[in-house]
Amino acid sequence: MKLIQVKRETILEKRFTPKMGELKTKVTSIKKQFLGISIRTIHKYRETYYGKIKDCRDCELTR
């Protein structure tokens, strides 16, 4: 059994961009886990409508 694992999880989130407004997109987050408990998020990214991969820091979260 490994003590430290790296897991990838995809969830549907609401995002807001100034050009497009509010949109729902699949956001994939890569998390480091210790004994199945999430320690920290290493990276978050999303796929655009056109198939490009963008970092989640490029758009703001809605309230």
Rank of each mutant, 00 (worst) to 15 (best):
K2E: 15
K2N: 08
L3R: 06
V6K: 00
V6M: 04
K7I: 14
K7A: 10
K7S: 10
K7Q: 10
T10E: 12
T10M: 08
T10C: 05
I11Y: 09
L12P: 02
K14W: 03
K14E: 14
F16C: 13
T17V: 03
P18T: 13
M20V: 00
E22I: 06
K24W: 09
K24H: 05
T25R: 14
K31Y: 09
K31P: 00
K32L: 15
Q33S: 08
F34P: 00
F34T: 05
L35Y: 03
L35I: 11
G36C: 07
I37R: 04
I37T: 05
I39D: 02
T41C: 02
T41M: 01
I42G: 02
I42L: 04
I42N: 05
H43W: 04
K44G: 03
Y45H: 10
R46K: 09
T48K: 03
Y49Q: 04
Y49T: 03
Y49G: 03
Y49M: 14
G51S: 07
K52S: 14
K52V: 08
K52H: 12
K52L: 13
I53Q: 10
I53K: 14
I53L: 14
K54A: 08
K54S: 01
D55M: 06
D55I: 10
C56V: 13
C56N: 08
R57W: 01
R57F: 08
D58Y: 12
D58G: 06
D58E: 10
E60Q: 07
L61G: 02
L61K: 08
T62V: 15
T62I: 15
T62R: 04
T62H: 04
R63Y: 05
R63K: 13
